[in-house]
Design a binder for these strands. Sequence first.
DNA 1: GGGCGTCATGAAACCGGTTGCACAACCGGT
DNA 2: ACCGGTTGTGCAACCGGTTTCATGACGCCC
Lengths: 325, 325
Amino acid sequence: MPTLADVAALAAVSKATASRALSREELVAPETAARVRAAAEQLGFVPNRAARHLARGRTGIIALVVPTLDNSFFTPIIDGAQSRAGEADLQLTVSVHSLDSPAATGAFTRLASQVDGFIVVAPRGPDDGVRAAGSLKPAVLVDREIEGMTSVVADTATAFGFLVSRLVDDGHDRIVYVGGPAGSWQDGQRSAAVAAAASGRAELTVLGPHPSTFAAGVAIASAVRESGATAVVPYATAIGLGLMFALAAEPAGRPVTVSSERMVVESLAMRGVPAIDVDGAELGRKAADLLLARLAAGPRTPLPAERLRLPVPVRWPDLTEPLDA
Amino acid sequence: MPTLADVAALAAVSKATASRALSREELVAPETAARVRAAAEQLGFVPNRAARHLARGRTGIIALVVPTLDNSFFTPIIDGAQSRAGEADLQLTVSVHSLDSPAATGAFTRLASQVDGFIVVAPRGPDDGVRAAGSLKPAVLVDREIEGMTSVVADTATAFGFLVSRLVDDGHDRIVYVGGPAGSWQDGQRSAAVAAAASGRAELTVLGPHPSTFAAGVAIASAVRESGATAVVPYATAIGLGLMFALAAEPAGRPVTVSSERMVVESLAMRGVPAIDVDGAELGRKAADLLLARLAAGPRTPLPAERLRLPVPVRWPDLTEPLDA
DNA sequence: GGGCGTCATGAAACCGGTTGCACAACCGGT
DNA sequence: ACCGGTTGTGCAACCGGTTTCATGACGCCC
């Protein structure tokens, strides 16, 4: 593993010049730069990123904080952020942390000193915990907005509103919304949008709050039946899956249209289901972009907080086969 | 962010002593160590891991190489390896790479110089590419064995053998094995075990090779029907799902028992399915353990190659409800 | 032709730790 | 009282880069 000193020696220049030739080429004579590049090429030189960042007083690591890995909503976010960070020669470290517990603050502070910045996915919990985290290092929030912080969210509220109004157009006049976890920011957005879309046009029953689990969907099925609704809009995919499962197992009754987010199992279970199409990878990429910009700006001239909302397409297939007919 | 020098100053010792007090306590006087610890505590000192590893001529990063992220078999492996690496203060970087393309060698060599070692998940492709990768840095192979390399594999072959012999015991005398991707190491193991278990006791039809996809399962369904088999053992979960989906959609015919690996969707689609239970996280943890041991040993006295096989439990539920009856 | 601004380069300091080596204090043994 | 052997500590070098600053060479202008 050749070092910069080796390259410099081979090119007959100093370490300083070699460094400049490779990273800030405009500072050296073209001919010298070429010579250094050739030497680096010949030796197969690859700069040591730890040393590079260390010299700049950085760690070269950014942390992606998620509440759990046990939810396939987060995986693509990680993926997107990862690829973006990689392009900027930054390591991404994934840290499982729910910021709502004050006890976790110590561990979090320790983490903070190891990284240059955060991407935080904290779907729920008090604003203060998240805000405190964001005060330690530059931070970007994903899928949640907090006053004064930079964030990128999937605009699922608009998509849910569209979904409901389309359902109403299709003749559904009794609709159930199954709420997500208590304190979820997105749930607040979605339920408001759903209520607005249904207002005055359909009877809306709101159930919940419920955790985003398969089991919750199963448990809620009978309540959905009893509501007399012909369409149900669940907060999360997992709830929708449980719901479909439980409804399908019942003796055939009134058809119920279940909508959901699109996910990996769609090809098996979600044929013909109206769905919103959240691009998790794009969320991750945008979050990384925002963070990189803030890091580049430096602590001297911090960028003003920024809120980004990504549009969420709605997929509306032919509903030729009711799911539980 | 206080540095070691700050701690040393506060404790009225040199940087050297401060360093030793915090990392190799046995080298300093107990009373001094206590003083340094107190100073570090008071300042909220957190050592900079990049600097630490740099000083030791290491990067502090290990790479986990996977062929794709688009397969939920890999996720738990990442998870397990991640947690293990974290305990040893190492960063884990996930790199998507299929080692079979010689064109990728350049990029791979570049990666190699950035990390201390590899965990390689390369389910298929020629041995040579993988071996070449392993020659650059200490490496541990996951779910594949290659002569001369350290590896940890889930012993699914034994589990598949058990599965088939149990099926035969239950009266199935015509069985289909749906082979996995061409060149897959695990497929070689599994098909051999299946053949051995069926040998002389049941008629075995082997289909394939097939990619591990839902679509492949759907496509193969009619061939499975035509084979006249009453039980089918697919190489991968995704194939099994597609198969179940396609068989269920047909007008009810002869019951067919489909087995599979257990995965996240099991609660929805895989009730009553005999399944093998691969613990991906444990694979990841063990792989990290093996790699850490090799790194600790250092390049001077390399450890001999080691092969670890993790037992794979087989889950055999009551088959009260045939899936496509 | 002297003064001045630009450009290219190298020496050395620096980032934040670890470690080899020298040295001093202190130990028990004879 | 002298000696060899531990123990504890500090100085300085080192890891592999980046960056500040000083210096020298050059071109330009008056």
